[in-house]
Design a protein around this nucleic acid. Structure first.
Lengths: 309, 309
DNA sequence: CGGTTTTACGTTCCCCGTAATGATT
DNA sequence: AATCATTACGGGGAACGTAAAACCG
């Protein structure tokens, strides 16, 4: 094999990281499992670090893997945007575009692609409205905002609204580097129940996570409830507890640089689904259309990817 | 050929842009001219824009080419840094590092790689001293700074100092998009003499450029002298004049978004050589060593590349 | 056993180099 | 004629798919 990293490596790596299974990732990139497995092995050899833990149920990112995932995404995003900018003359698209999203979605999802979008379409004036989901739905129907970013699994009534799921993010257990969980391939809710639990009460996180616990007839031992993701990270890094959150919010380090580990959950847990919503009866403006297409493209059209169950 | 952009395309493209000749670029990347020429042709087809103007004497970046060069460099920089970070465990290098540079060098050269360096070596505390060349040399000898970034062709006495040229930047004529120069492949000093000239008096630019004019027994028709590169760009974009400056300072657009064209000069003009300097008798600290190696690596080891004459 | 990753191996096709050709002064 | 870039074409090797093997609960 090659001794140089190629874009092929990055693409297969990202697909595998997002799908959690080499087989599924191979489908997504229209390749055979062996090709993807070989590429990842080769990539690991070049970098000199293990990127995945292999289990019989699939693969799971290591600490280093998560770090490299950030880089790989940045690189491909930069490249794809640049290519797109040249292939399509984008400077003629102009006008106003009002986006709505919740605070967590803005900070952990929207900020990066949004700045990319503004670079590619410099003549589109983007206005960003931060609100709770219910308010966003109301504003959407009222025509105050063009497109809303919402956790699509929770939309109350989709009547008259077009919903397009862009992104599925697996939910995992977070713990400190030295924690006993970090040596187990999969952690069950029963095990998590025994630990101090840190509950994030931001946006819809608390409701959704509580639902998961209830579904399995269990209850987390909540030691702290906070609205700050950074606080969650910080306490977990200091071995003050564990939590369950979507990988969208996950970063492999806390503010002070200590490591945090992400482990899959033994039980089947629904993914967090994020998508865009707009009014069906309203003709989309050119800038709305551009934005929607841009988001699909940015996320590598992985909306139809199965993700975890 | 392929219909996808690869890193190979980017590498060949960057080498060609920096060398100005496909043959020379091919040498630098250890390839045949045909391989490089094909790759660039293919890249242009994919992007749908011409990246180079072809001349008998070599190739020269178009407006779009300059824009894509920025992107291509960012992408490869990101990738190389990421790979390096994993291949070498860098977090253990720590300590203080005092760098010296002039104002133009800091803004147009140092800022980007410096932030990359601080990411890779988070435990190295970098302090930056802005000063004129003569002061930097004095501070270097006095031990107040570890490494200085200096225009190496002008160093007064290199006695006791280790000089390593990192970067050569071709000097070109800048003019507005519609200017008569923009349709000529090469512009002679005689032609430039007929135009209003805008003189940048920042750092050593004025001295160096004046030397070039004197060497050919000519004199520019200076209409404006300013210390601001942005002012230079802005006036040139508005067809108020032309200038000669190194490509290091060149960007294909002015602050208000109008285009600026860069054209090669007919006469042989020395490149602007930038390098790092340190005291020979002083044992380099680990962080100094790391920084020097980092800079060499970042610039693709193109210090020994011939560049223009 | 069932689901997964990994290895083995024959094959394909992309990309390179050599060498001829074209363009420009 | 000299000096570039470009085109034509045959050969080599990286990367693919098929299929079998190893792994693990």
């Amino acid at each position: 094999m090659t001794s140089q990293v190629t874009l092929r490596h990055l693409r297969y790596f990202i697909a595998t990281a997002e799908c959690g299974k080499i087989q599924v990732a191979a489908e997504r990139v229209y390749m055979s499992p062996s090709a993807v497995a070989n590429a990842i092995k080769n990539l690991e050899d070049i970098l000199g670090v293990k990127l995945f833990e292999r289990h019989r149920t699939g693969v799971h990112l290591t600490y280093d893997g998560h770090r490299f995932l950030d880089d790989a995404r940045s690189i491909l995003r930069l490249l794809n945007d640049s290519i797109f900018e040249f292939q399509n003359k984008t400077t003629h698209v102009e006008g106003e575009l009002v986006l709505g999203a919740s605070v967590a979605v803005i900070g952990y999802f929207l900020s990066v692609p949004l700045s990319q979008f503004e670079r590619i379409y410099p003549n589109v004036k983007v206005r960003l409205v931060e609100n709770a989901r219910s308010d966003l739905e109301r504003q959407l129907r009222g025509g105050e905002i063009d497109i809303a970013f919402i956790i699509t699994s929770n939309i109350s009534i989709s009547e008259g609204l077009e919903v397009h799921t862009l992104f599925r993010s697996e939910r995992t257990v977070w713990c400190a580097e030295g924690h006993r969980f970090s040596s187990i391939p999969k952690v069950s809710l029963e095990e998590i129940e025994k630990e101090r639990y840190i509950m994030l009460s931001l946006d819809e996180a608390e409701i959704n996570i509580t639902q998961i616990w209830r579904r399995y007839g269990r209850k987390p031992n909540v030691w702290l409830k906070t609205q700050s993701v950074e606080a969650v990270r910080s306490f977990i890094a200091r071995e003050q507890g564990v939590t369950i959150l979507s990988n969208l919010l996950y970063r492999p380090w806390s503010l002070d640089g200590t490591r945090i580990i992400s482990k899959p959950i033994a039980e089947t847990v629904p993914t967090m689904n994020l998508g865009i919503v707009w009014r069906r009866d309203r003709v989309p403006t050119p800038q709305s259309h551009c934005f929607i297409e841009f988001m699909k493209r940015t996320l590598n059209e992985n909306a139809e990817s199965p993700g975890a169950v």
